[in-house]
Simulated scan of single mutants.
Amino acid sequence: MKVKDACLEAMAQAPEGWPQAPLPEIAMVGRSNVGKSSFINALCKRKKLAYTSSSPGKTRTINFYNINGLFRLVDLPGYGYARVSKKDRASWAKFINDYLADRDNLVDVFLLADLRHEPNLMDREMYDWILDGQFSGTVIGTKADKLSRNKQGQAESVLVSSLQIPDRSLLIPFSAVKGSGVQEAWSRIDSILGQSESVDPQEL
């Protein structure tokens, strides 16, 4: 897909703030500072479409990015940041769960995982939920440029084993620095949207 237009359509913490137009949505989930914003920027070839921060836990809203007026990429707040208060974590968990459970527009959920670190319990629980929800099971292995080719292969094997990814082709290694994995991610997105009744495959 060629991105001709991409914009931040909405930032919301409650259902009343979600965009109303019934466009299909692909959500990005993962730990704080895993690189969701960088992934969205790389997909759209925009440097500042999605805000990136060196401070984990800063994103406190669900951010909806409208792509070509055809679908949305949705950036959910990162989970697992210890310095956030229990009250804030509980609040975030609620509006994230509300979105994942109740959003009719949702057609897929990508889990982003840092290739340098073994998945934790929250990653595994989230991935189990994704598979149980009959989504594609796509995992974006971020920060691939931080590893040598040999270590990257080892890290991919650990990720596949730990998450119990049913097919290794579901893991897409990604680097915002090198741009690797972008084409593969778009191929997956085009396939997902092509199966959605809300998008005409001719428009992809």
Rank of each mutant, 00 (worst) to 15 (best):
P77C: 03
P77Q: 03
Y79P: 01
Y79C: 05
G80F: 06
G80N: 08
A82T: 14
R83E: 11
R83M: 11
R83S: 11
R83V: 11
S85E: 10
S85M: 08
S85I: 09
K87S: 12
R89W: 03
R89H: 05
S91I: 10
S91V: 09
S91R: 14
A93I: 02
A93N: 10
K94Y: 09
N97P: 01
N97Y: 08
D98C: 10
Y99L: 01
Y99A: 02
A101H: 11
A101T: 15
D102N: 15
D102L: 13
R103C: 08
L106P: 04
V107K: 02
V109S: 00
V109W: 01
F110N: 03
A113T: 13
R116F: 07
H117W: 07
E118Y: 03
N120K: 12
N120M: 11
D123S: 11
E125S: 15
M126R: 04
M126D: 00
D132T: 08
Q134R: 10
Q134L: 10
Q134M: 11
F135H: 07
V139D: 02
V139N: 03
I140Q: 02
I140V: 14
G141A: 13
K143W: 04
D145R: 02
D145E: 11
K146N: 10
K146T: 07
L147I: 10
L147Q: 06
S148N: 12
R149P: 03
N150A: 13
N150W: 06
N150H: 12
N150F: 10
Q152Y: 06
S157H: 09
S157W: 04
S157G: 06
V158M: 15
L163C: 12
L163Q: 03
Q164M: 14
Q164C: 10
I165K: 06
P166T: 14
D167K: 15
D167G: 11
S169V: 13
S169A: 15
S169N: 15
L171H: 04
I172V: 15
P173H: 00
F174M: 03
V177A: 00
K178C: 01
G179F: 00
G181P: 05
